[in-house]
Simulated assay, not measured.
Amino acid sequence: MTESTDKPVVLFVCIHNAGRSQMAAGYLRELSGGAVEVRSGGSEPGDQINPIAVQAMAEEGIDISQAVPQLMTTEQVRASDVVITMGCGDVCPIFPGKRYEDWDLVDPAGKGIEDVRPIRDDIKRRVQALLGELTPR
């Protein structure tokens, strides 16, 4: 837990912050019920959320349509307990003492809903496992 909050802080990072990281953030916000502070960012933020990612999450009852791609900052990484990267390679800053995971996920950019659903479902499984570790019952 960071000093500023009694909740664990998780940062999801992908290149454009328009698909994978937004879906993961949407799931963690929804599934944690506020028990986890959720942030997301990108190394080269896109200009909008991937509409197919929005559609895929809407099928799960999660609305990410109002999310806006954000630039990931060094301060966000420093203030997070867990940093999950999704294909941003060497552009994600690393700080000693942080928990890092790299989730090898297909980029949903340019894909149709049939191809995005399995990516969404993979993200959901990973988020559920992460949540189980962060908030043991």
Rank of each mutant, 00 (worst) to 15 (best):
residue 3 E to T: 09
residue 4 S to N: 06
residue 6 D to K: 08
residue 8 P to M: 01
residue 9 V to I: 08
residue 10 V to I: 06
residue 11 L to M: 05
residue 12 F to E: 12
residue 13 V to L: 03
residue 13 V to S: 06
residue 13 V to R: 03
residue 16 H to K: 13
residue 16 H to N: 10
residue 17 N to I: 08
residue 17 N to C: 09
residue 18 A to G: 13
residue 18 A to D: 11
residue 19 G to R: 00
residue 19 G to V: 03
residue 21 S to I: 11
residue 21 S to M: 10
residue 23 M to I: 07
residue 23 M to D: 04
residue 26 G to L: 11
residue 26 G to T: 13
residue 29 R to D: 14
residue 31 L to D: 03
residue 31 L to A: 03
residue 31 L to I: 03
residue 37 E to G: 02
residue 39 R to S: 10
residue 39 R to D: 09
residue 39 R to K: 15
residue 40 S to T: 11
residue 41 G to V: 12
residue 42 G to D: 07
residue 42 G to S: 05
residue 42 G to Y: 05
residue 42 G to V: 03
residue 43 S to E: 01
residue 44 E to H: 14
residue 44 E to P: 01
residue 45 P to D: 07
residue 45 P to A: 04
residue 50 N to I: 02
residue 52 I to Y: 01
residue 52 I to Q: 11
residue 55 Q to I: 01
residue 57 M to C: 07
residue 57 M to K: 02
residue 65 S to G: 15
residue 65 S to P: 10
residue 66 Q to M: 09
residue 68 V to S: 14
residue 70 Q to N: 08
residue 71 L to N: 02
residue 72 M to F: 05
residue 72 M to Q: 10
residue 75 E to M: 10
residue 80 S to T: 06
residue 81 D to E: 12
residue 82 V to T: 09
residue 89 G to T: 09
residue 90 D to F: 01
residue 91 V to T: 14
residue 91 V to Y: 09
residue 91 V to G: 00
residue 93 P to C: 00
residue 93 P to V: 12
residue 94 I to E: 04
residue 94 I to L: 05
residue 95 F to Y: 10
residue 95 F to L: 14
residue 97 G to K: 06
residue 98 K to A: 02
residue 98 K to Y: 03
residue 99 R to V: 09
residue 102 D to V: 05
residue 102 D to S: 14
residue 102 D to R: 08
residue 102 D to C: 07
residue 102 D to W: 05
residue 105 L to V: 06
residue 106 V to Q: 15
residue 107 D to T: 07
residue 109 A to K: 11
residue 110 G to E: 08
residue 112 G to M: 03
residue 113 I to W: 05
residue 115 D to S: 14
residue 117 R to K: 15
residue 117 R to V: 15
residue 117 R to W: 03
residue 118 P to T: 01
residue 121 D to C: 13
residue 122 D to E: 15
residue 125 R to W: 00
residue 126 R to L: 12
residue 126 R to V: 09
residue 128 Q to S: 13
residue 129 A to D: 15
residue 130 L to D: 03
residue 131 L to T: 04
residue 131 L to E: 05
residue 131 L to R: 02
residue 131 L to Y: 02
residue 135 T to A: 09
residue 137 R to N: 12
residue 137 R to V: 12
